[in-house]
Design a protein around this nucleic acid. Structure first.
Length: 831
RNA sequence: GGGCGCGUGGCGGAAUUGGUAGACGCGCUGGAUUUAGGUUCCAGUGGGGCAACCCAUCAGAGUUCGAGUCUCUGCGUGCCCACCA
């Protein structure tokens, strides 16, 4: 029955052919002036690391399916692509291979662009850019200057990770177990002058905004909330005995203030020097202790180390109890949170308890679970709220009331106030690295810190700078460094630090909308037309950093009036977190050596088979195990579709695909129903934004399983229902297997692409069934099934149920106490 | 230590609102076609039982006419943050 020419689906030539044709026709351009409603689909900007593997394909396939679906559902869809091109791997590659970072990056981009096209993904390439283009990073510098003007970009000393061998700062991610990831030297903490963005000014807005982000996974919202880490408490001062200094502490538990038995300072606390001046006897001990601490990495200072400290010789006065309490320098107080000084309450804080035990400091209980005074000493810190005791005027109060009362008392005497602290810090944006955006600042001996004027942007990153891995290459490039001061014209030096690459990815989503603009980062008109991004897609590894920075940048843009704030100040309406692709139970990655390449996969199985497998194997937010058997199953599906449909295309061309065929029997009705169930599934997964296209592919399997026997049956093969199904097949396949769909569509005689067709809305009359089978339960257990036309009432259902021999036997002559009837589904009899 | 998830056949998973558990695919078993392998096609595939039936969604309890789904406890497992006072 099958003609030879239809027996084998030649995916290689077919897929290549359509990709070239689509590209030539500009099928995926998103016009700015279009009457259709807009829809902006964005996948996170990829880093051009070299080769794509099927893990990348998982990400891009989901975005591509959504893009095609939304286009078919009548939207003007924006789906751009670009490159997060600055960053460390390019510099490391430059060192290893002795080629400039730009050469390595550009060749990776070319390769990855080719591979993405090979996947048949529909992007509007006319909007493409790389962040290392001077036409892009110019605007990074422009944003930096606008932040600088607003007081949101500033420079200060900060402790950073310093590798003494490579003579460079390392990002936290580049420190592994306290050692440099490249040379394995022990990383030191150093105070260096660094540029920051004052993201903490936006803390409350970033926090409040999370509540409105209902299209984001709760997990990510919780992570951002925790990361921001808002904490309300009291800041108040202790006077220091014999020393002209006060020590401010921050606490969320001011109700425990009568239990303070020591003050714990961070070694970096500024008061330490003053205290040492008054207590020279302790100087040597403290300095040795501080020096040891300074040489430790953050990691060693935190989780790995036991709590230790040294007594300073000085005492503080508790402003409430008037008690005299010792001041210690410790290793467990963070210098850059709160005030860098903590009131030690071992009775009610686990860390203070550990410390007090170790250094034999007194432990007193000032909070109890009940009002009765406990008769036993504490065996561990009691950290819950309770009732105050041994707390002067506040005895018997609840913790909550005491916090208010004590804070008020401290405020009244000018010693303290209510304060809010955040766990997250200002964003450190400077890097002592070459391959990034130069920070547009000049240091002048007369004028100090001077911003590069806008008309001198971009500050070009000089090519051909030797990269050795030893310190910042720009800091040694005299031609780059030596400039004239924009203010006085005298000799001056450029800033040699470059920006964190997270700056690049904080606003790229607006640049796509106007990527050729030479006079501004983007025009307001275009941003207003397209923003916000309707669906953002990417992995959860960016849950905090990138997604927080991008939100901050967008709020800044809204505040400056560059984008319309009436649509809100959040850039990404919905966020979808893709699950990772696993192989042999581990995340697929180059470093694990378990990657499956795109090229080989496409060659061996074809693009459509790969896409279908990635969609079918698991819901998109779950991780997915790559198997060759699984993808073989999808090539089987494609062959089944091809063998069933291709021979019938000529006949089907004459049958309408926009109106339902005449139904001549149950087999025909079931077939058309399968078509519309698949159409409904695709539409519903899209409209609900659940994107569980794994379910839709199952409906496609059911559809082909219904069509295959029909086309083999001589009595059915020319039936209108069969020919209708063949004609609709490419439409229902189009988002998932775009090449196969197009090949069939053109074989049906169409001269325009199937990807420009409208999705067909599921027809209720096609979905309707002639008979249903409802379940009869007795006491909740299934005892019978009854076939009837749908829509019968309870009495009819009951009568039918009782005519079922099995049901009748089980019920017997027991009285029926209750009946529960769910229309067309079940009847439950309680006896 | 804190926060958030997740536990369903041999495997990936389906069951969107409490209503026929195991759709669909992979794998496996038997058969047909084929010189053979592959492809393709047919039948079967949670466990027990000859059968009618019984038992099954990590374990245990609860709510309900009815629980994979809701509540509680325990166990297992994953991710994120981890001395933030």
């Amino acid at each position: 029955m099958l003609e030879d020419r239809h027996a084998i689906y030649e995916y290689q030539s077919i897929e290549k052919h359509w990709q070239e044709k689509w590209e030539a026709e500009g099928l995926y351009r998103a016009p700015d002036d279009d009457p259709r409603p807009k829809y902006y689909v964005l996948e996170m900007l990829p880093y051009p690391s070299g080769d794509l593997h099927v893990g990348h394909a998982k990400n891009y396939t989901l975005g591509d399916v959504l893009t095609r679906m939304m286009r078919m559902r009548g939207y003007n869809v924006m789906h751009p692509m670009g490159w997060d091109a600055f960053g460390l791997p390019a510099e490391n590659a430059a060192i290893q291979r002795n080629i400039p970072p730009e050469t390595w990056t550009r060749s990776n981009i070319a390769n990855m662009r080719r591979q993405i096209r090979l996947m048949g993904a529909g992007y509007d390439w006319s909007r493409e850019f790389a962040t290392c283009d001077a036409t892009y990073y110019k605007w990074n510098q422009w944003f930096f200057l606008r932040m600088y003007e607003s007081g949101l970009a500033y420079k200060r000393e900060a402790p950073v990770n310093w590798c003494p061998t490579d003579m460079t700062v390392l990002a936290n991610e580049q420190v592994e177990d306290g050692r440099c990831w490249r040379c394995n030297s022990v990383v030191e903490r150093r105070n260096l002058s660094q540029w920051f963005f004052k993201i903490t000014d936006y803390a409350d807005r970033l926090l409040a905004g999370i509540e409105k982000l209902e299209g984001w996974p709760d997990r990510i919202r919780a992570m951002q909330r925790n990361w921001i880490g808002r904490s309300e408490g009291t800041t108040f001062a202790f006077a220091v005995d014999d020393v002209d200094a006060t020590l401010e502490v921050y606490t969320t538990r001011v109700d425990t203030v009568y239990g303070v038995t020591f003050i714990a300072l961070a070694a970096e606390h500024p008061a330490v020097a003053k205290i040492l001046a008054a207590h020279p006897a302790e100087r040597a001990t403290i300095e040795t202790f501080s020096a040891t601490l300074r040489s430790k990495s953050e990691l060693e200072r935190t989780s790995l180390m036991e709590k230790t400290g040294v007594f300073t010789g000085a005492y503080a006065i508790n402003p409430l109890s008037r008690e005299r309490i010792p001041i210690w320098v410790t290793n467990y107080v963070l210098a850059d949170y709160g005030t860098g000084a903590v009131m030690g309450v071992p009775g009610h804080d686990e860390r203070d308890f550990d410390f007090a035990k170790k250094h034999h400091l007194p432990i007193s209980q000032v909070i109890a679970e009940h009002k009765a005074v406990p008769d036993r000493p504490l065996e561990a810190a009691f950290t819950e709220d309770g009732f105050l005791l041994a707390s002067g005027d506040y005895n018997g109060m609840t913790s909550a009331r005491a916090r208010d009362a004590i804070t008020e008392k401290l405020a009244a005497s000018g010693l303290g106030r209510k304060t809010v602290n955040y766990r997250f810090r200002d964003w450190l944006v400077s890097r002592q690295r070459y391959w990034g955006t130069p920070i547009p600042i000049i240091y002048c001996p007369t004028d100090g810190e001077v911003a590069v004027p806008d008309d001198q942007l971009p500050v070009i990153l000089p090519p051909n700078v030797p990269i050795t891995g030893q310190g910042s290459p720009l800091a040694r490039d005299e031609a780059f460094l030596n400039v004239t001061c924009p203010k006085c014209g005298g000799p001056a030096k450029r800033e040699s630090d470059t920006m964190d690459t997270f700056v690049d990815s904080s606003w790229y989503y607006v640049r796509y909308l106007d990527s050729q603009n030479a006079s501004a980062p983007f025009s307001k008109e275009k941003a207003d037309a397209w923003m916000p991004v309707d669906q953002y897609i990417g992995g959860a590894e960016h849950a905090v950093l990138h997604l927080l920075y991008a939100r901050f940048f967008y709020m800044f843009m809204v505040d400056r009036g560059w984008v319309d704030g009436s649509k809100g100040d959040e850039p990404f309406t919905r966020l979808f977190n893709q699950g990772t692709l696993l192989r042999n139970g581990e995340k697929m990655s180059k470093s694990r050596g378990n990657v499956v390449g795109i090229n080989e996969t496409v060659e061996k199985y074809g693009v459509d088979a790969m896409r279908l497998f990635l969609l079918k194997a698991a819901p998109p937010e779950d991780s997915l195990e790559w198997t060759d058997e699984g993808i073989v199953g999808r090539t089987r599906f494609i062959s089944k579709v091809w063998r069933a449909c291709a021979p019938l295309c000529d006949a089907a061309a004459a049958v309408s695909y926009t109106s339902l065929p005449e139904i001549r029997g149950d087999a025909q009705r079931n077939l058309v129903r399968a078509v519309h169930i698949a159409l409904q599934s695709g539409a519903s997964e899209t409209e609900t934004r659940r994107l569980h296209y794994n379910a839709t592919t199952a409906r496609l399997d059911e559809l082909i399983n219904a069509l295959t026997p029909a086309v083999r049956d001589p009595a059915m093969v020319s039936d209108p229902a069969v020919l209708y199904t063949v004609h609709v097949m490419p439409i229902v396949l189009a988002p998932f297997a775009p090449h196969l769909a197009e090949e069939l569509w053109r074989a049906l005689g169409h001269t325009t692409s199937v990807h420009l067709e409208r999705w067909i809305d599921a027809d209720p009359s096609a979905l309707a069934v002639q008979t249903i089978e409802f379940v009869v339960q007795v006491n909740g257990k299934v005892r019978g099934r009854v076939a009837t036309p749908p829509g019968i009432d309870e009495e009819t259902a009951f009568a039918l149920a009782m005519s079922d021999a099995n049901v009748k036997a089980i019920v017997g002559d027991q009285p029926i106490r209750k009946r529960i009837y769910v229309k067309d589904k079940l009847l439950n009899l309680v006896v």
